[in-house]
Design a protein around this nucleic acid. Structure first.
Lengths: 89, 89
DNA sequence: CGAAAATGTCGCCGCTAGACGACAATCCGG
DNA sequence: CCGGATTGTCGTCTAGCGGCGACATTTTCG
């Protein structure tokens, strides 16, 4: 489950290597700069443009799925409609 | 399967409404501006920052998964989670 | 129907991601 | 150990994202 930019970057790197592609190759296929890809895979920039990321994923024949994340709260709540009480800080 | 910023935005909007949150509320919880959220849900900006998007997803108890996307050619891949959210036609 | 809430949109502006070129640092095979 | 390939990083510059405030529009509900 991917919740951070770092996770996503690492996953991409893993996948790229499986596909035996260099950063330069993938970058070109995805239409981004090699340097950008380098930084993204390292996850050092939390503000990477989503569009570019998706371009890279596409170039790797990958896509995203939305999954419900484990609520911080305890237990086994299988409640899709959870969270109707306002949490305020 | 989410391959575009638009899809992601639409999914977020859907989810937000299910959670009975206004843009303002969600925006605040996620630490983004209301206007930004408005634009993101409309998918009009392909260059939204991934970090902010992830913040919003987290605020909605959602996360991302990487799935292999069917290459234009080749066989039909199985994706168990297809249609998790309503697809915009 | 009318008022309030929710959402969309505009202009202005600061900030920084990203492109590019160049170079250092690694990695890796022969 | 050496040479090429791969990757990381550093400047510089530009474009455009995002925050904010204000207003228009749409939706909701009494």
């Amino acid at each position: 489950m991917l919740t951070t930019v770092r996770d996503l970057g690492a996953a991409v790197r893993h996948r790229r290597r499986e596909a035996r592609l260099t950063q330069a190759m993938l970058a070109q296929r995805a239409g981004v700069s090699r340097q950008w890809l380098s930084g993204f895979e390292s996850g050092k920039n939390p503000a990477v443009e989503l569009g570019k990321v998706l371009d890279v994923l596409t170039a790797l024949d990958l896509a995203l799925e939305l999954v419900s994340a484990p609520p911080p709260e305890t237990g086994t709540d299988v409640d899709p409609f959870a969270g109707f009480f306002a949490e305020r800080t």
